[in-house]
Simulated assay, not measured.
Amino acid sequence: MSVLIVIPARFASQRYPGKPLVPLRGADGVARTLIERSWRAAQAVRGADRVVVATDDDRIRAACDGFGAEVVMTSAACANGTERCAETMAALGEGHEVIVNLQGDAPLTPPWFVEALIAGLAEDPDAGMATPVLRCDGRALAGLLEDRRAGRVGGTTAVFDSARRALYFSKEVIPFTARTYAADAPTPVFHHVGVYAYRPHALAAYPRWAPGLLEQLEGLEQLRFLENGHPVLCVEVEARGRQFWELNNPEDVPRIEAMMAEMGME
């Protein structure tokens, strides 16, 4: 299948303004911006035919020009990354069978996460979109719970049915569990990884739907699909020894840099 990867990036983030241009220091001591690290992650995906950064900000465009990324300028009216991907698809033409939304705040996303999504859509012709979920070990779950105790909006969790269709996504830690887990022990909590793969018809429909109450309360764009009766396929992925974390708050910068150092990521 022909695959387009879009990296939506906006400067005016409410939680962390200027986030795409925040420098992150790798294991080699070299600092690269978040948007460059996200672009490098996209470049590592096998089967991707084209990678573009979609933004409405000239500062981000200039930074992307500096490391050689293709940029599509989109409207400042886009409410989220999915709307920005839909606008990008319309600008480039519907010449791709799969459009991947690799959100620009997840520089640790392994390429096999995206490859699994593409394979998931290929195996399920009825699915209009897919997103990866990663089973938390005790260490990852502790990090999510610590963020909530500190009043920080950290990672998103997902619950799904036996057919892997999403039931709900939340910035709270769901499902509730009173147990404690060893750092390397599996838990019943799945971390939702902020990547989406859409078929063109599903992506084109998205901007026509008004944001629903749940999407507005949680601030999670994928809930618009559920609120409009469109199933979301959850594809379970494996970490394979890689740590994963999204950059949502300034406090996440040292955490991600520590993970890159531990994993030897330059």
Rank of each mutant, 00 (worst) to 15 (best):
A116M: 01
L141F: 07
I99N: 00
V72W: 03
L134N: 04
V72E: 11
E87W: 10
A119E: 13
A79K: 10
E87F: 05
A91H: 10
L144N: 04
T88Y: 00
D57G: 09
A106S: 14
P132S: 06
T74F: 01
R84N: 09
L144Y: 04
P107C: 09
F113P: 01
A77H: 12
R59H: 14
T109K: 08
A122P: 02
V133I: 12
L102N: 06
P107T: 07
L102Q: 14
A130W: 02
A63C: 13
A119R: 11
G66W: 08
I99G: 00
L144D: 08
A62G: 12
R139N: 09
D65H: 15
V72A: 06
A106K: 00
L121P: 00
P107Q: 05
D105S: 05
E115H: 03
A122V: 11
E87I: 06
L117P: 02
F113I: 03
A62Y: 02
P132K: 01
A63V: 00
E123A: 15
L117V: 02
W112P: 01
A63R: 07
L121W: 03
I60T: 10
L92S: 03
A77L: 13
V98H: 00
A77M: 12
E70V: 09
I118Q: 02
G128P: 03
A76Q: 11
D137I: 04
P110N: 12
A119Y: 00
A69V: 06
E115Y: 03
F67C: 11
A76S: 15
T131F: 11
P110I: 06
R61T: 07
A79L: 14
R59M: 12
V71D: 13
A86F: 01
D58Q: 13
V100G: 05
A79H: 13
V100N: 07
E94P: 00
T131S: 14
C64F: 06
D58C: 08
F67P: 05
L108I: 11
G81C: 12
L141Y: 05
A79I: 10
A91Y: 07
C85T: 07
T88K: 01
P111R: 13
E83V: 14
L108T: 14
S75H: 09
A91G: 02
A62V: 11
A69G: 08
I60M: 06
T55W: 15
R84E: 07
A77R: 15
V98M: 06
